[in-house]
Amino acid sequence: MQFLRMRIGWLLAVFLLGTTQGQDEAYKKGPDSTRKPGIPQGAVTKAKWTESKVFPGTVRDYWVYVPKQYDGKEPAALFVAQDGGGFVSEEGSFNAPAVFDNLIHEGAMPVTIGVFVNPGSIPPVEETSKARSNRSYEYDSLGDLYARFLLEELLPEIGKTHKISEDPRNRVICGNSSGGICAFTVAWERPEAFGKVISHIGSFTNIRGGHIYPALIRKGEKKPIRVFLQDGANDLDNLHGNWPLANQQMAAALKFAGYDFQFVYGEGKHSARHGGAIFPETMRWIFRDWKEAK
C-alpha cells in the first residue's frame, strides 16, 4: 500500500510538473502565508450543509474560521471563499487561516470571520453511481441564485452564532476560476451585501454566458464594489473562451466605468499559484482602508 501511495505520488508529481511547470513555478508563498511563532491562531471548524432550498438535493462541506481576536462584542468583517476547501487548507496555495492570523495581528485587515464553502453536489442513490456535480450550475450561471444560497441560507445560519458586519465594505467574496466569476456575480447581483470581490483566474468566459460581463459593466450604472482580478498570460484558451483576454476585457471595462479595481496580470497558467502567492498583498489592498470603513 505504501508503495502504491508512493507511485501515485510520483504520477501526480509528473502530472503536475507537466501542467504547472515554468511560469507558474515563480510564484511561491511568502512569509505572510505561513505560521509565525507568537501570532494568535484562529480556529477552523468544518461543517456540512445538506438542506439547501435554493439548490435542492445538494450537499456540501464548509469551514468557518474565527480569529482569536474575535470577542463576539463587535461585528466582525466577513470573507467568503468559493471552492473553500482549497483556501482553508494549510497545504493549499492560499492557507487563508494563516494569512488572516498574520494580517489581523498586524492590523492590515479587520477581525474577520472566514467562510469557506465547497460547491454542492447531488449524491447518488446507488453506490455505483456518481454524484452529480453542481459546481458549474452554481458558479458559472449568471443571476442571483448562488447569492441567495449564501444570503438566505448559509450566512444566516453562521450569523446565529457569530456577529457579522452588515456593512458591504466589510464583506469580501472571493474565488478561483468558476469560483471567481461566481464571486463577481454575487457582488454584482447583491452589492449591498458584498462590497469587495477577489477573483483569481476568473472564468469570465462563455461557460454559461459570463463573457458578457465586460459589456454589462460598460453600459451599467457603476456599482459600489471594489474588485481585485488576477490572471496570467498562460491561462486557458478553450471552447469556452480565452481567459487572459477575458480578464483583460474585465479590467478594461472596470477602468472605463470608473470602478475601484486592481488587475494583476502575470505569467501563470490556470492554477492557484499566482493568486495564492500574492494573497496577503491582495488582502492588504482590498482592506486598505478598513479602519475608515469602521
Binding site: L16, D83, S89, G92, S93, S133, L239, A272
Partner: peptide, 22 residues
C-alpha cells in the same frame, strides 16, 4: 498524502474536463 489530496483536488476543480466538439 493530505497535501497531494489538496493539490489534486484543486487541479481537479480548476481544470474540470473541457469537452469541445473536436
Amino acid at each position: 498524502m493530505r497535501r497531494w489530496f489538496w493539490i489534486c483536488w484543486l487541479a481537479g476543480t480548476l481544470g474540470a474536463q473541457d469537452m469541445p466538439l473536436s
